[in-house]
Structure formats: C-alpha cells, structure tokens
C-alpha cells in the first residue's frame, strides 16, 4: 500500500489583485486559495489511496498565516498534513521551496509517490515538482493526465507537444499533474468538520537541516496594463446594429 505525499501551495487569488494608480500591484483586498492545479493533485492522491489503500500526507511550505489552507486541503481527503512554516517563507522562490520540501520529506515522511500540481497559479514557474524530484534523487514524470499504480511501478500518461507518452517508473517517483486528470471535489460541511480532527505536524525553520538562500533577485514587479473602451451593448436589434457599426468604424471587418 503506497504512502502518497501531495504538495500544495496556499496562494493569493489573482482575481483580487488591483492595479494601483502608478502601475504598482494593489494587494489590499486579496483573498487566498489553494492553488488551482494543486486541488487536482490532492484529488488524485486521494483517489489513488481509495483505490490502492495506503495513506496521503499533504505538505505545504508557507507563512504561518497559511493555516486556513491546511484545513481546506485536509477537507479534500488527505489523512494528515505537514505545515512547514516561518514568516520568512512568504515570498520564497521555487529553488527554496523545493529544497525545503526535500529536506522535510526526505527526513521525516515515508513516501512511494509524490504528487504536485503542474504549476502554481501565482508564480506558475512549473519548477517545484521537477526540482523536488531531483533533490530527492527520484524519477520525475511531469505534465501527467492519467496515473495508475501497477505493483511497484507508476504508469503515467504524459502530455507532450507531439502527442501523449505512456511512461513507467519504479516507485518512489514524483509526478506533476495537469488539470485534465480529474475534477477536484468541492468539500462539504462534513468534510470541513472531519478536517479539523486530522493531525497537522508543524515544522519550523529550526527543524530544517540548513537554510536555503535565493538564487534570483526580483528587480521590478509592475501591473500589466490594458486600456480598453469598455462599451456595453444589450441584445436588442438596435444594440446589435450599434455593435456592428462600431466594428465597421474600427475597420476590423473585412
């Protein structure tokens, strides 16, 4: 029965980021969410456990404020969570996140299969999964749309530019999953209640083997701008005519 580890990130919901008057990012009214494709990762971990038995541990690295995310993650079915937190983990880069995850997973958690989302919805660097595999020295299969456990092997269908590759690797192995792989559940009230009874292992910065320094420096971060006319029409005949006329005036119809 496989021990499955699933990694997730608690991120700013980008839909609430505003553009400030001088082009800076305004985070004053943001809320947070579990990164979209990490929900697929959690769902897949739980699906495989329900099929093959074993356990699912959900792991996240973040600032201490991310506790809400733990409850959300656990309400999606994992048995246990590991919360690696420190105020300084708020804005770390993928090389650090993956190193911290490898430090903890490698020394404290039993694993046969590690599942990550394809990329996080905030930075979307798509690096943490492959970097974590490399740190742990285990095989990596990225961008997977179908996953099966076959004895001590993982069979994964991987989406590449020229089609689909069916690949196999001996466990332990790390996979990153695409949103195609499943439809994540929407947790109900009962799931949320159950989640609060599950074990959360807190891991502090001091519990890590070492500190991990950044390798990138952000020199600028500006809101992307898009100025549009924002004219709205209804669906009455007069509106349709007005709409078509506007496009004719723009000279974009041939």
């Amino acid at each position: 029965m496989p021990n499955i580890v699933v990694c997730f990130k608690w991120v700013i919901d980008e839909a609430y980021i505003r553009r400030g008057s001088s082009g800076e990012l305004d985070f004053s009214s943001v809320s947070y969410k579990i990164s979209d494709y990490d929900r697929n990762a959690i769902e897949e971990a739980v699906r495989l456990r329900n099929e093959s038995g074993g356990r699912v541990a959900a792991v996240t690295v973040g600032s201490p404020e991310a506790t809400k995310g733990l409850k959300d993650a656990l309400s999606r079915g994992p048995d246990q969570a590991y919360f690696i937190n420190d105020a300084s983990f708020e804005n770390i880069e993928p090389s650090q996140t993956s190193a911290i995850l490898a430090d903890v997973i490698g020394s404290k958690i039993e694993y046969d299969l590690i599942i990550c989302g394809e990329g996080s919805s905030d930075l979307y660097t798509q690096q943490v999964g492959p970097r974590l595999a490399e740190r742990l020295g285990i095989p990596c299969i990225s961008f997977v749309l179908k996953l099966t456990i076959d004895g001590n092997h993982i069979i994964a269908e991987r989406k590449v530019e020229d089609g689909v590759e069916v690949t196999a690797a001996p466990m332990p192995v790390l996979v990153t999953v695409l949103p195609d792989i499943n439809t994540p559940r929407i947790p109900g009230v009962k799931d949320t209640l159950m989640a609060s009874k599950k074990e959360v292992v807190n891991i502090a910065k001091d519990d890590l083997a070492q500190t991990y320094e950044p390798t990138l420096q952000t020199t600028a971060m500006t809101a992307a701008s898009m100025e549009r006319r924002c004219v709205k029409f209804g669906a009455e005949p007069g509106d349709i005519a007005g709409f078509v006329e506007a496009l004719e005036k723009e000279g974009v119809l041939r």
């Binding site: 980008e14 979307y124 990138l216 952000t218 971060m221 809101a223």
Partner: peptide, 12 residues
Amino acid sequence: VFGGTAVQKVTC
C-alpha cells in the same frame, strides 16, 4: 506572474 496580472523582472 499572477496569471498575467503582473510582469516580474528577475536577475540570477
């Protein structure tokens, strides 16, 4: 970053 909401510049 943030789905295209922002442009980030980095150096290594």
